[in-house]
Nucleic acid binder design. Sequence first.
DNA 1: ATTAATTGGTTAAACGTTTAAGCAGTTCTT
DNA 2: AAGAACTGCTTAAACGTTTAACCAATTAAT
Lengths: 359, 359
Amino acid sequence: MIVSVKTLVLLKRLSKYIKNYVNKKRTTIKDIANSLNISAAAVSKAMHDDPRISAKTKEAVKRVAKELNYQPNHLASALRKGKSNLVGVIVPKTNSNFFSSVVQNMEEVLNKSGYNIIITQSNESFKKECDSIDTLLYTQVDGIIASMANETIDLSHYEKIKSKGIPLILFDRGENDLNVDYVGIDDYNSSHIIINHLVSKGCKRIAHIGGFRRTRIFNNRMRGYIDALKKHQLPLDESLIIESNLTIKDGRTKTHALLELDPIPDAIYVAGDYAALGALQVIQEKGLKIPNDIKLVGFGNEPFTSLVHPTITSIDQNSQEIGKLAAETFLSRIENPTVKQTLNKIIFDAKLIVRESSE
Amino acid sequence: MIVSVKTLVLLKRLSKYIKNYVNKKRTTIKDIANSLNISAAAVSKAMHDDPRISAKTKEAVKRVAKELNYQPNHLASALRKGKSNLVGVIVPKTNSNFFSSVVQNMEEVLNKSGYNIIITQSNESFKKECDSIDTLLYTQVDGIIASMANETIDLSHYEKIKSKGIPLILFDRGENDLNVDYVGIDDYNSSHIIINHLVSKGCKRIAHIGGFRRTRIFNNRMRGYIDALKKHQLPLDESLIIESNLTIKDGRTKTHALLELDPIPDAIYVAGDYAALGALQVIQEKGLKIPNDIKLVGFGNEPFTSLVHPTITSIDQNSQEIGKLAAETFLSRIENPTVKQTLNKIIFDAKLIVRESSE
DNA sequence: ATTAATTGGTTAAACGTTTAAGCAGTTCTT
DNA sequence: AAGAACTGCTTAAACGTTTAACCAATTAAT
């Protein structure tokens, strides 16, 4: 079949026309402008309650907008304004009560100031975290609030955020070297609170299943544990200190090891609730009684700590406050863009929730 | 102080210049073009490996892009292309293992096809759900995958998604009336599986704490329960059927009521794991033994069901498959935009995980 | 009665990309 | 040798908003 070039061009035009017709192109500001015989600029201004537009016109614009089911195009306005009003949030896992609660509170604060959030999860993976950051930067977020993955050591992708000139706020899992805002609890002091409590209950041989020391917060908990023992003039026994990835499974394994010792510890302070749960199971399987034979303290105040038997003493991390403050910190950075980012730590005191496992 | 209009204009120009300089404006395609003395169009094509650009130019473009730390602007490309490559995901809660796992699997599938996801949580609130939908539409997502909030009865905001012509996929909590794709498990049949199991263990007086019947999935579980009893020629006792919001607390309350009956039931089938946990607590507090005095079955296979004592028999909802299939359904809708959306149900069989509470 | 200020808009450019169309220059056909 | 086809770009318009600059008409100030 031979078809002239002209025919081809016409066919293309036609197909475009049909496409537009079928997809019944979204209504834009121009459609409103046309139907009211005013300029698109006037419509835009009317929508934003510009004082230079008459009340009558504003009303008409809003009426027609509703009639035509107009929805503003974020891409266009964000592109033009150079501001997306989107905040990226990176968490290691969403299915933890702590992170879920932090995010919820952040969202509440940010929504009030006209920001929406995009949640991404790193699944504790360094690669996924890098990808998340790329996605967020690509989406042109106005800032990023993040809690670092366990695996993360190399910080170059976080530097990338800083180099873009948008605010970066870290919470819970932070890193001093980045020199950015940080919101979290006082991990060092939390360990002191826990040890004080256990000592007051008569414990003398307290074990610690901690997270990896390369992660700052876990290192701080470890330091707090060691210093608190010193304060109470208890001997420091290296075999009572174990690093763990703090999953249930690893909590079980490490507790098994601790119960092989002779004498066994009279208390275990676990730096994460899930691992504490694993410890609880193993202790009971061995026929030992909690808290009589051995006391147990977790960290994080996950809901299940008050649901298992016995209920587990734990540290509440004040997730509401952390979420709110991280969001507010972001907002203040946005409002003062000239102020250079510096290491600005906002530290909360944590609360010890005493339950059956250490009574 | 008197300042001429001209001076004012000059000042404004200056301030804009300074602003650009201070914010060291992000590098764009034009910067690359200038530095190579080619057109911006050529750069764009080189980036996308257009066959009409020479290998030499492509290489040069990519090199300079890296040198200048170029990051494409999603807003601009999405605006131009009319496609954001973003998928909105709405879940009732992120801190549930089921939803978290579904989302994770969705993300995996979608990322492979070049899509990124934006997660929003409705917190089971109707209003928040509407807001989420508005945000997502405003962000120009290419589609929405959602699980409905408990509160939701009015479906007009979901109709709004449909009217935009972008794909809407529902999972777990769906609604026939919307006439869109749905991915979930066979709730009706799940009840049959549970009742079959309990009957085989000798139960004759099986109670059911279900969700609100206005939610389709809970209604289906209820129907399945009733029909399964009939099948086994067990009497239907209305006092054994209770509707609940399925929180731990309500699980406790409703179980208290059931244990007031005479005779008490010999099994309780609870339509949600959290409520089942509440039931477990109350039963034990009353001094009754599980499974000897009374058997217990939950729904959802939340991790804690295998962590409490006794471990709780539950239904696994196949979250991985649901996530993957919801994503794939979205992709196939995108690839065949002309096909009209219809009620297209993809139903999985659920798996019963038998544990101590019903042995 | 001028000039100045206010009102209620309009025009046009810009944000950063993509893409249809065009166009030299070279190479291949026949 | 003349046209066809290919190569490797360039030009310019478009996506939907926002906004600086401008302007005509009205009202206020002196």
